[in-house]
Design a protein around this nucleic acid. Structure first.
Lengths: 347, 347
DNA sequence: TTGTAGGCGTTATCAG
DNA sequence: CTGATAACGCCTACAA
């Protein structure tokens, strides 16, 4: 007794109506007599009718599904962004198809293909760390498929995007460390072809300059992955200097925590000997001892904003969008690792 | 100049073939002359033909999409499970549609509707913490839509599922604490209608009994959410006892870390005064000071296994599946918070 | 080996 | 206000 789904035509037959009439009754759209509208709805309810979205999608040319590509989902940041994306998308009646690039360029390209084939109505992307060019997005743009980037984009690219003002984040954080009286501030940074790491670094530099301090090359350490393990490596480098730093601003929380552990092992006290600040407000950053000063990026808002931007593009009939950028202001969270007297949020 | 996507019939026209021939050539399926096969593929390539999956899905009655419902995605556990799900699903040519229930029953019910309407070929679910019954899954089963639960299921329910042997996890962890010489071991648990919390608790009880120790009611604290904030609350309760515990086994890492912080604030040393163990191997559990002993659940494997089970069900033509359960063995990770001499992984 | 025809479930466009 | 009919793009008997 395998029940087939009831379709619009089942209802039509039962009620001696034309399918088109039923369709209209169901979608409330055109002019329909209240009487038949009611009859149709009641029977639909009774037969537990569920519209076949695939058919509708095929007919209408839109699937009501958004594609999302993120480097990964097991970090705090993207998990929250995805949460924001999903929430807003669902509210607007869109489903979300999720893909992870695993920080891999080739995988990302495959994801793009997948989503295009799945006929999504638009794509949201945050670039993988190994992505240096846009060529796998060419097809998307040729197809005039709405495309919005978030957080990670290529430096200097002209695309629609929602990003955090990483420059401000880097600037404010460095300024905070300066305000604490620190003068030799080191920096742990990530790959500079990604806007986020580049901008944080730029903010750091500018803050130093504004304080009439030089940017000392030996105090800047750039990593490829900004992983936990990079922390100890960075610390080794810094402590080997003739004049080690009295503060470190890391462009990522993972590396910061790695550094924290390494500093402790070297017998240095945080923040007394070395102040430490991260970036990203990962879950664990408030669970370390001392708790890590970091920068919050409004992850969920970012996801929501990205979806709204994408939906706008989808709604516009003229498929000629000019790149539009939304910039969110980050927030410095001062915690124990940077302030001798623990303080509250700033900015 | 809005390019329409090229369809199978465009190719057919261009090559003076029937659409069916092209279709077959493209899917390599039936017997086709090598010559035309080649011609078709070449033109397809040249025109950058992309199959319209919606149409195929409509025709074949399967969308090659799996639906996933998780309580949330911003914790380590589900993020990793989803990663595993996605990986295996993609390899098998399936897309993943993601929904979060936000630990809310009503939201979960809505998610189910959404996925059914999206015509997914099967659904993977981990129950929200506020879900006490299966009634919103009735329709899924009526429709004979493949359904697999993972991790969180209702205690004693007969469904296909992939779970961790939480009983063993609880047992082994408690045994580990006993092996460390602890005799008054407290337990922080979660809602008992969920298998995971119930089984961890059962394991705890049995380990005590096997050591000829009583399960003392005052040492067992059950929480609704197992959040970070529950930790301090639990600690307050335990320290107010005439005879406080010398160890705590928490059914979740968050509560454990909250407890860790509270213990420190009370001037107690971990593990010297109180040994502490969590459950879940959250990212942060290895970043605390001391590092937290916990239980790893093979999250990604769980996701993969769940997908494989679901795919099996999808492939079976007879839509008469008998509930099948896969049980993964957890792994106790001994770290600083429970062992005076830090040790290695056990089990 | 290839072509013909019908249909998956909806929606849109015409008439009536 | 309602009905008939033609797509949407693809697949699959069945026929040639």
């Amino acid at each position: 007794m395998v029940r087939k789904r009831t379709s619009i035509s089942d209802i039509a037959k039962e009620l001696n109506l034309a399918v088109s009439t039923v369709s209209r009754a169901l979608s409330d759209h055109s002019r329909i007599s209240e009487a038949t509208r009611k009859r149709v709805w009641e029977l639909a309810e009774q037969l537990n009718y569920q519209p076949n979205h695939l058919a509708a999608a095929l007919r209408k040319g839109r699937s009501n599904t958004l594609g999302v590509i993120v480097p990964n989902i097991d970090g705090h940041f993207f998990a929250l962004v995805v949460k924001g994306i999903e929430e807003v998308a669902n509210q607007a009646g869109f489903n979300v198809m999720l893909c992870q690039s695993n920080e891999d360029n080739a995988h990302e390209a495959k994801n793009v293909e997948t989503l295009m084939n799945a006929q999504v109505d638009g794509i949201l992307v945050s670039l993988s760390r190994s992505t240096h060019d846009f060529k796998h997005f060419d097809k998307v743009q040729q197809r005039k498929m709405p495309l919005v980037f978030f957080d990670r984009i290529l430096t200097g690219s002209e695309v629609s995007a929602v990003v955090v003002d990483d420059y401000q984040g880097g600037y404010q954080m460095t300024k905070h460390l300066l305000d604490q009286g620190r003068r030799r501030i080191a920096h742990f940074g990530g790959p500079q072809h990604l806007n986020i790491y580049k901008d944080r670094y730029r903010g750091y530099c500018q803050a130093l300059r504004d304080a009439d301090l030089p940017v000392e090359e030996e105090l800047v350490v750039l990593f490829k992955k900004m992983s936990l393990e990079d922390g100890p490596a960075g610390i080794r480098h810094l402590l080997a200097l003739p004049q080690p730093p009295d503060a470190i601003f890391s462009s990522g929380d993972f590396t910061a925590v790695g550094a924290l552990r390494a500093l402790k092992q070297h017998g240095l006290r945080v923040p007394q000997d070395v102040a430490l600040a991260g970036f990203g407000n990962e879950t664990f950053s408030s669970l370390t001892d001392p708790m890590l000063t970091t920068v919050d990026q409004h992850c969920e808002e970012m996801g929501g904003a990205a979806v709204r931007l994408l939906l706008e593009m989808i709604q516009e009939r003229t498929r000629q969008w000019s790149p539009r950028k939304i910039v969110l202001q980050p927030r410095v969270l001062v915690r124990e690792s940077s302030a001798v007297a623990a303080a509250v949020a700033v900015g």
